[in-house]
Simulated assay, not measured.
Amino acid sequence: MTVTRLQSIPGIGVDKMGDAADSSNNPNILRLENLDTDIRPPADAVRQTHEAIDDDNANSYLPFTGQVALRQAVTARMQRSTGIEYDANSECIISAGGLNGILNVLLSILEPGDEVVLTDPTYAGLINRVRLAGGIPKFARLVPGADGWRLDLDSLSAAVGPRTRALLIMSPSMPSGFVANMSEWNAIAEQSRRANAWLVYDAAMERIVFDGLPVIHPASLPGMRERTITVGAVSKEFRMIGWRVGWIVGPLSIMADVRLTSLSNVVCQVGIGMPGATAALTSTDDGVAQAVAQWQDRRDVILNALHDLPVIRPHGGWSVLIDTEQLGLPSTEASQLLLAKGEIAATPMPGWGPDAGRYLRFVFANEPATRLADIRSRVRAAWGI
């Protein structure tokens, strides 16, 4: 019998699509189902990782909260992002990837039955971690428009109630590519203060923003340092998915509990991964700006090719959504047809929020623009439109 905490967790769907594409052994398939990228990590990070393999200090459990140099690099980045100083010893913990950090934070702040506000749509893995930690997800709607996604502020207010313990917000958000503007961040901060709730900020894609939009860190807003917990990672911006290195930065009042949870869950991080992560964070040539330019170009190829279909413009991140229900196709059926007839692997969104099931996700981070050039003809072959 399935234990109770797993009964409302449907999975994420990406694994099934990835397995289906892999099993086909067809190199012509466009791999738009998974958040990988073909753009290389920073050269300094790769070089330092090679050196770490021969470094006995990297083959160690210690320190349990992460290597000192990496924690110092993370807090220095936080100061650049927020203008706020954080103590590398007491207010920063290294995690085994960003999502490990998210789960450890949720386990540290939630009592069973506490509510957590997320956006709809949002990554199913975030929703599932709320449930694993005993929380109840509540949702604020993201509304699609001609120029992309906006947060429905009335929906946000309605989602916050007496049992709200945290708001879990990602910007840029995955899978939508929603990037919160200043008025939206101010509204999120106000709701956090009103409910006396934590703001858990998933900063995994913080600098992957397009169209010249500014990067806004919510901890920099008035009164938010003491209630914002930031979780970041080298996976996306620095293209270092396999390193499994993330970080948690927050006020002293909660970090002792997060440390205890971290010691009780994944005891320590990937030893040989941390020196490379440190190198990425301190490199003078991290390649982020160049990578973001390439990802924006790929986004634009898809938006231009599918301009006659109901696609929603993302302002950041690695993916774009298409509303297949407007085309008379359930997203799961649309995904199956694309793989069978269009040689495109793309993930449908059931389980990614109450209204998210109508969308199909195209990830543009792992396919060059030349491979995306015929995406419209592939879609036409699959859906007949």
Rank of each mutant, 00 (worst) to 15 (best):
I229Q: 04
G250A: 10
S220P: 03
S335V: 09
T282P: 04
P162Y: 08
D374W: 07
I375M: 03
L321R: 04
N104Q: 12
L260N: 08
G328I: 05
M1A: 11
I102P: 03
I312K: 01
T284K: 08
A356Q: 02
Q269D: 13
L151F: 09
G101Y: 06
A356K: 01
A289C: 00
A334L: 03
D323I: 04
M182F: 11
G242K: 10
A219Y: 07
V266S: 07
Y61W: 04
G11F: 10
Q326W: 04
Q336A: 09
A256P: 00
D15Y: 09
V200M: 08
S283K: 06
W185A: 00
S95L: 07
A88G: 02
A280T: 03
V379G: 00
T119M: 07
V292L: 10
T282H: 02
V292I: 12
D297G: 10
V130I: 14
N186S: 14
T122A: 07
F178L: 08
I241V: 09
T2S: 09
D54R: 10
M255L: 10
I93F: 07
T82A: 07
V46F: 06
E184A: 05
R207N: 05
I127H: 01
N186Y: 02
A20E: 13
R193S: 14
L6C: 11
L339C: 01
R239S: 15
R361N: 12
A140C: 04
S171C: 11
P63T: 03
L35D: 10
R71F: 04
T2V: 10
L303W: 02
F238N: 05
T49L: 02
N196A: 11
A334R: 01
I302V: 15
A189W: 06
R227K: 09
P314E: 08
E85L: 08
Y86R: 07
G353L: 03
R371Q: 11
R298W: 00
V200G: 04
L339N: 03
W149F: 12
N100M: 07
R244E: 12
E206H: 15
S173W: 00
G161D: 12
D286R: 05
A21D: 09
N304C: 10
Q296E: 15
R193Q: 14
E333G: 00
L252R: 13
L221S: 06
D152P: 10
R5H: 13
V179L: 07
I169E: 04
L281G: 02
E367C: 04
Q336F: 00
K341S: 02
S319P: 05
P144G: 03
V130E: 00
E190D: 12
L132M: 13
A197H: 01
N89F: 01
P275C: 05
P350M: 05
N26Q: 13
R80K: 14
C92E: 05
S235F: 09
L252G: 03
G101S: 15
L156Y: 11
A96F: 06
W318H: 10
A203D: 15
T230F: 00
A289T: 08
P218H: 07
